[in-house]
Design a protein around this nucleic acid. Structure first.
Length: 571
RNA sequence: CGGAGCGUAGCGCAGUCUGGUAGCGCGUUUGGUUCGGGACCAAAAGGCCGAGGGUUCAAAUCCCUCCGCUCCGACCA
């Protein structure tokens, strides 16, 4: 392929609307072009990488025995109503109607569709297990699209779904996908780590996310450097040492005018935030619940939701706070709240805590010298791990302190159980003609996001450094003297020789000066650069260099040996 | 949805406060000189100044409305 025949528009300046390196480089290297917020066109170069990532995924899933299908993007609303997610997905889902007013969704995912599909084909245990997958554009009405392809309204996802006869059999399907994911990300040149995760809106039993570590990542991850425990902060557990609370005198009121937040009261009283108990009123399925956590920690709503087994959990509104506590937000506390029998739950680090400061359930007042056991009615069983893990928290597995990292979620595997197969009555018959519900798993990879994650993880000041497996072209030939027929001939012959050897190559045949070509080659980041020029040929051949090595590694090789030398650099 | 910032040539920006012929750099086209890490000279093309309304003799500039983009936040007491 010749550069002058491609549609490439590299940019010297960073685009005005990009914040992170990978987003800037996607645009500057002419891989994508923005149409509108959260909507991108893949340009020829970007699409080549995109297809390579797709093919790696396809090969590994095929190898794992999965079957490719393509299901409609436009999904009838009735499917979503059957699973209850027409409501549950809320405004995250694009909804539309046809001319007959029949409602549809633009698929944000396809559990409903695939369950309906498999149910209609599979009726016997002999047909199981089966795993199907597709590459399909997904649509989500994101609150805030950002960072280019990282979080967009429309994105390419590989989604796979397994169906098994039992929980145990489903574990094997899960394991097969997990292993395939490890291979896929390795082949993409990515360091992706599996981390334990919450199952979120999709629901299910357990799951792992695959994360690429990057400061620009949107997710917090707790990492144990000692034993390798890794979990999304939404889920990350922690161990808490028992509190040896010294006895304290009876509690008493303190007037704290105009001090609402922990920071304000802490400053007012001259006591650190950790001495406080922060108390929040949540509405759990419409019922008020008070949640107490140390003043310097934040509630983990995901953990709380699981602990309370609540369907819908949100912070209580103003009226509910007043009715439950007797005071407004800012003065809420666990000692004698207004509502008799109000359920109070607390973080386990508060068990046995004494001498704490809490809201007095009376506006502008706090209580000091509170002994959680003596002064509150919190049940033994209502102490649980309810806060977001922090760096330094104790690993639940090995007892050593954990680190905090940030990650880009590129893949996710779920063991779903029977949530959807129950809803759709997806059953099979066993050899006794007895019917059972199939057990399901689902497995996603964000293809467009993975492309960007590779860039985020592999670039330098000059541009992208593509891993050879996913580069738009593996080799760029910088033809420095395109007007010189004898030099051009060498470049073109090398191009066909490389193509015959299965190496894809782009010849920069522009009439520009060398510096322009070198800069663009570095920006786009072809793994190997070959310079063909009159000067080099006079010195004995063509010059080859890997993108990830500097000029000192450049080698002059005779034209006849060039293909072998280039293949060696790509290996 | 709340807050902030920004919309001027393909891209990056100045001009807006203080109204008076729409500019700069990169890119593009043509000619010439150059030619191994983003060359130089000359000439040229390219803009409904986000859209609509208002004020004014006159609006990119002042006022109003809307639209789009980016960032922060979305109830942690």
């Amino acid at each position: 392929m010749k550069w002058t025949k491609m549609l490439i528009q590299t940019l010297r300046d960073d685009p005005q609307d990009a914040e992170i390196d990978s987003h800037k480089l996607l645009v500057r290297a002419s891989l994508v072009k923005k149409l509108s917020g959260g909507l991108y066109t893949f340009l020829p170069l970007g699409l080549r990488t995109f297809r390579k990532v797709e093919n790696i995924i396809r090969e590994e899933l095929d190898r794992a025995g999965a079957l490719e299908v393509v299901m409609p993007i436009l999904q009838p609303a009735e499917l979503w109503k059957q699973s209850g997610r027409w409501e549950a997905m809320g405004p995250n889902m694009f909804k539309l109607r046809d001319r007959a007013e029949k409602p549809y969704a633009l698929g944000p995912t396809a559990e409903e569709e695939v369950t309906d599909l498999v149910k209609s084909i599979v009726s016997s245990y002999r047909q199981l297990p089966v795993t199907v997958y597709q590459f399909q554009w997904k649509f989500r009405d994101e609150i805030r699209p950002r960072f280019g392809l990282m979080r967009s309204k429309e994105f390419m996802m590989k989604d796979a779904y397994s169906f098994d006869v039992s929980m145990e059999a489903a574990d094997a399907s899960y394991k097969a996908m997990y292993d395939a994911y490890v291979r896929i990300f390795a082949r993409c040149g990515l360091k992706a780590y599996p981390v334990e995760a919450d199952t979120g809106d999709i629901g299910g039993k357990f799951s792992h996310e695959f994360h690429v570590l990057a400061d620009a990542g949107e997710d917090g991850i707790a990492f144990c450097p000692c034993c390798g425990y890794a979990a999304n902060l939404e889920k990350a557990e922690r161990k808490v040492a028992a509190v040896a609370g010294d006895p304290c005198p009876a509690y008493e009121e303190v007037h704290t005018p105009n001090a609402k937040t922990i920071d304000q009261v802490s400053a007012f009283m001259g006591v650190p935030g950790s001495a406080f108990v922060k108390s929040l009123i949540y509405s759990a399925d419409g019922e008020p619940v008070m949640v107490c956590v140390p003043g310097d920690r934040d509630v983990n709503e995901v953990k709380l939701k699981h602990f309370l087994e609540a369907g819908k959990l949100e912070l209580a509104d103003y009226e509910m706070v007043l009715a439950a506590s007797g005071a407004n937000a800012g003065s809420v506390g666990p000692v004698k709240p207004a509502k008799a029998g109000l359920r109070i739950v607390a973080d386990m680090s508060l068990k046995g805590a004494t001498g704490r400061i809490v809201g007095a359930n009376k506006d502008d007042y706090h209580l000091k010298n509170v002994d959680m056991a003596r002064d509150t009615t919190i049940a033994e069983a209502d102490y649980a791990d309810l806060v977001i893990a922090q760096a330094g928290d104790i690993c639940p597995r090995c007892g050593k302190p954990m680190d905090l990292k940030r990650g880009i979620e590129v893949g996710h595997v779920f063991k779903l159980g029977t949530k959807y197969t129950d809803a759709f009555k997806a059953v099979y018959k066993n050899d006794q003609l007895q019917e059972s519900v199939m057990v399901m798993g689902c497995y996603g990879i964000g293809v467009s996001r993975t492309v960007q994650a590779v860039i985020e993880q592999s670039h330098d000041r000059d541009g992208i450094i593509w891993p050879a497996g996913v580069a738009p072209f593996q080799v760029v030939i910088d033809l420095l003297d395109p007007a010189d027929e004898s030099v051009a001939k060498v470049a073109l012959e090398l191009e066909s020789a490389l193509e015959s050897a299965g190496v894809d190559v782009l010849v920069d045949d522009r009439a520009d000066r060398p510096g322009v070509k070198f800069k663009d080659a570095d920006l786009i980041g072809f793994p190997v650069r070959v310079v063909v020029g009159a000067k080099g040929l006079a010195n004995g051949g063509v010059e080859v260099k890997r993108r990830d090595q500097d000029k000192s590694h450049m080698k002059i090789v005779p034209v006849a040996e060039a293909v072998a030398a280039i293949k060696a650099l790509l290996a």
